[in-house]
Structure formats: structure tokens, C-alpha cells
Write a protein that binds this DNA or RNA. Structure first.
Lengths: 249, 249
DNA sequence: CAGTGGTCTAGACCACACT
DNA sequence: GTGTGGTCTAGACCACTGG
């Protein structure tokens, strides 16, 4: 029957948090905690607005934000209901460091190289800087439980950020960039595979010719500047890319 | 200086296409065609609304949809401007068939297996059906220019769809599902790598032990049912996953 | 300070799904 | 037909940015 459910909802008009956001948070946590079970109908927007003392557009804005997150589905003539399947990670710009940490793996990082170099043609093209101009070059080996997981080589435009080796070993590159006031906007990624060279194999304690998972990425900030270019190699036995994505209908 | 630009815009109130959508389309194509160059300020929403004879919320809805697509950036107190970097594919639920076709590769598909089988524990768990219950099993080899690119093995719940071998060879699985009225909603994907077994190597004209790119995926429709489970292997020399993604800020 | 986007209201009419 | 979400209007006040 998919019954519609009465839910305790309230908003605080004195709070600086937007009303639609307060409502969205309450609905989201109700879904998270199982108070709103999958398939439940949310009840019509008009009545919900009246119950909360809000206008309909405000209620719609709250609901829409959860639809965008994939937690709710709207059907005209039917109603709004909670999605059955559990959506966990709608695919963020994944940070290996954060991935490992949230998996309880306590990652460790050793910085192998942290210098300025002249940009090669490949790096210059990716970052949109002049070929031969100076860029940061950082090479890191990331491990967990004493086993190497990935070899990360990154290039950053000069003058964007202080790259302190100690900080690089204590956290991820993305956190440093955000902390420096850089607003990440989008990234272009390529994921592939290839056989390990002898040098790569030694770094990751594999054999030459063994399969490696590879990823190249260029990250842009909200002004459109390229702020990072990275070429990474992963041990496929220790890491794979896992994510949930939503279909644009 | 980032000048704001006068643009020819108009809406047709007789059209069944929503006004905000008409406006969004015109702005998007202006960005696409370079009429609106990166960094251009769009001009304030009030004036834009007045010029088009629309209300401000309608104009905002149009602009917001392009912000969500990553084409525009809004800054309070500043304005709305066109993003510098080119956002091409905001990462859809990628269909290998469509990917290859849009790359001008004219993919061909040969269906190797198309039968009903009893669900293994793995398949049953992925699709949420009873272990041992009947499910479709489809195995396909996809090629371009006479070279194999990927080996695709998919499982689908019984009774969801007619799986005609001829149609499977003429188009992609996702198109068939959409055509059958299934609304795709989300998918959970895992991308990894491993060495090819002898059997896999022969299918893809590689050598045993060569690296393969692998992908497993479970796709859900908007009611939360799992509608497809696939395990795919790709020749890394012929295919890699490439996509652009947006940061949720 | 002036200008921008961010939020919010209280209505209205329409298109579609179900019975 | 009835009820739902989809779209739209014409205002309003606030918060933040910049000069």
C-alpha cells in the first residue's frame, strides 16, 4: 500500500540555516535512520507546507535537493516517495587518502620527491602553463598496514600553494588545497590498466609485467584554472575504484 | 574586465517546452557556440528577467540548471559567469556501445550466450533475487574495426524484458531497457584490474597474464529494484574509462 | 555605499496518473 | 473527477562582495 507517514518535523525561523535546508536535513536523517522506510509516500507538498508553516516553493526546494541526491523520487499524479535502494556515495571527487581513512585503513604517506621542475609538454598542456615553466612536482607512496597501495605523481602550478612535506605526509593533497582557499570545481579523469615496468614494480612490491591500475586526473577550480595534474598507479590487488552514480533523466 | 554581454534571447510562450528550459537551452548553446565566452558575466537576474518578460524565479531556475551542469558559476555580490574550463561529459551512466558510437568507432556486438540460468549466490545477492531462481544470462563480445574491445557478461531478473539476440547485436542493453519502459536511476560500479586467465585472453586476443581492465556494475531503476548485474573485462590497450565529474560544494 | 545572488511568500494554472 | 507534482508570477527582505 505504500502508506504515507506522519513525521515530526519542525523548523527554527531564528536559525541562520535556510528553512529549506533544515527541512532537507530532517528528511534525510529520517531516511538515514529508517524512520522513513523505502517506498514511503511523503504526502503532498501543499499539506506539508501548511503543517510546517512554510510556503510550497520552500518545501519543494527541500524535496528537490533530496531528489538530486537520489534519495527521493517524484512521480506526477502519484507523489514523492523514498527510494528503495541505498545510495551511499553519489561519487565525489575521490581522494585516495579519504577513501582509505573512511575504510579504517589508517593510510600513511611518504613523500619521495617535492621540488620545482620545468614543465614537460604533457604537464604544460594539462595545466595550461607554458612549456618549460616552473611547476611543483610531488611524488608520494601511499601505504596501509605497511603495504604499498599507490604511487602518486602530481604537478601543480607555481605560486598556488605551499607544499610542505610534513603536511603532505599528514593528510591528502585535496585537503591542503581546500585549506588554502581553493574551491575545487571539476575534474577530468581517465582510468585504465597496463603492465608494470620494472621501476614501477619495485616501488609497489610487484613483479614487472604484473597488471597495474592507472588514473590520470586534471582538477579545475571554480575560475576554470587547472590546479592539479596527477598520474597515479595502484596495486589492483589492494585498491579498486568503487562509486555510485545517478542517472540524469 | 570580464564584460557583461548583450545576448539575443527570447522565449515562446506558446511552446509546451517550459520557459526556464527554453532559456537554459539558449544559454547552453550560446556557451557551446562560443557566443558566451568563458569568464563572461551574465548580467543580473532582475534585468535579465525584465528583458525576457519572465519572473525572477523562472530565470533563476534556468540559471541554476546550468550551474548544476557545471557550465556557470554564481558568486554572491559578484554575478554569474561562464566557467572557463570545458565541461563535456558530466559522467553519465556510461554505455560502452554509446561511448564507442559517439567516438565514431561503429561498434559491433556478437551475442555468445543468451539463456536462462539458475542464479548463483553472487548473482542472487547482486540482483536481490532468490539463489537458484531463474535469471537471464547474456554474454557478448564487443568489437570495433574487427578488433575485440570488451567481453560483457550480464544478468537480468526474469520477466523484466524480452532479450532478443538480434536486438542485442544491433544496439546496447541500456537502450533496450529504456525502450521497455524501465527508468534507470542509479548504479554501483567497481573498476579494477587483474591478469587475464587463459580463457579470457583467448576471447580478447591477448596473452594469459596480460593486464585486463575490469568493471562490475549493479543498476537500479527508480523503484529501487536491481535491473541488471554485469561483469565486464576490457582490453586496456583499446579502452579506458574517461569522464568528467563535478565537485559537490 | 550600491549591486549581486540567496532565500522566502502566497497565491495561480496546467499536465498527468489513478480510479 | 480528484489529487498529485510541474510551472509560473510579482513581489519582499537578507547576506555578501566590491569599491
Amino acid at each position: 500500500m505504500d502508506p504515507t507517514v506522519q513525521l515530526e518535523l519542525s523548523v527554527d525561523r531564528g536559525s541562520p540555516v535556510p528553512l529549506y535546508f533544515q527541512l532537507a536535513q530532517q528528511l534525510e536523517s529520517a531516511i538515514e535512520h529508517g524512520t522513513l522506510t523505502p517506498g514511503t509516500l511523503l504526502g503532498n507538498e501543499i499539506e506539508l507546507a501548511a503543517r510546517l508553516g512554510l510556503s510550497r516553493p520552500t518545501v519543494r526546494q527541500a524535496i528537490q535537493s533530496l531528489v538530486d541526491k537520489g534519495l527521493l523520487v517524484r512521480r506526477r499524479g502519484v507523489g514523492t516517495q523514498v527510494v528503495h535502494s541505498k545510495v551511499k556515495r553519489p561519487l565525489e571527487l575521490s581522494s585516495l587518502y579519504d577513501d582509505l581513512e573512511s575504510a579504517g585503513q589508517r593510510p600513511t604517506t611518504s613523500v619521495l620527491v617535492n621540488t620545482m621542475v620545468a614543465a614537460s609538454a604533457e604537464v604544460a598542456a594539462a595545466l595550461g602553463v607554458a612549456e618549460g615553466g616552473e611547476v611543483h612536482r610531488v611524488e608520494r607512496l601511499r601505504s596501509a598496514h605497511g603495504e604499498p597501495i599507490a604511487y602518486l605523481c602530481n604537478y601543480l602550478p607555481a605560486g598556488l600553494l605551499d607544499l610542505d612535506t610534513g603536511q603532505l605526509e599528514a593528510t591528502g593533497l585535496y585537503r591542503l588545497m581546500r585549506a588554502a582557499g581553493i574551491t575545487l570545481h571539476s575534474a577530468r579523469q581517465t582510468i585504465g590498466a597496463r603492465a608494470a615496468t620494472a621501476v614501477e614494480a619495485e616501488r609497489l612490491r610487484e613483479q614487472a609485467g604484473d597488471p597495474l591500475l592507472t588514473m590520470q586526473r586534471v582538477t579545475f577550480d571554480d575560475t576554470g584554472r587547472a590546479v592539479e595534474y596527477g598520474t597515479h598507479t595502484y596495486r589492483p590487488s589492494r585498491y579498486s575504484f568503487e562509486f555510485q552514480l545517478l542517472v540524469r533523466n
